[in-house]
Amino acid sequence: MAEKSIILYYSSNYAIWTSKLLHKRGMYHKLIPVPRHLSSDCGYCVEVRTEDVPIIEGLLKEYGVEYERIEMM
């Protein structure tokens, strides 16, 4: 099973934006509640494949999608 990472946000508006961008590109993503041990300002986060993180970081930067941090699970 591929390693997963989690993108944490200040606002879920940006999580939704991320999911749309990834959906359009056919990349794995899942909106999930923020896991208990990772505190975050916003109720949900986006789970992605760790191997996709570099591409996703570039994408988020390109579109100006603000996020708090990315955590490897």
Binding site: Y10, S11, S12, S39, D41, C42
Partner: peptide, 11 residues
């Protein structure tokens, strides 16, 4: 706002 919920200040 559904965000920043741990704070009592406006985001």
């Amino acid at each position: 706002t559904g965000s920043y919920s741990d704070k009592t200040y406006q985001p």
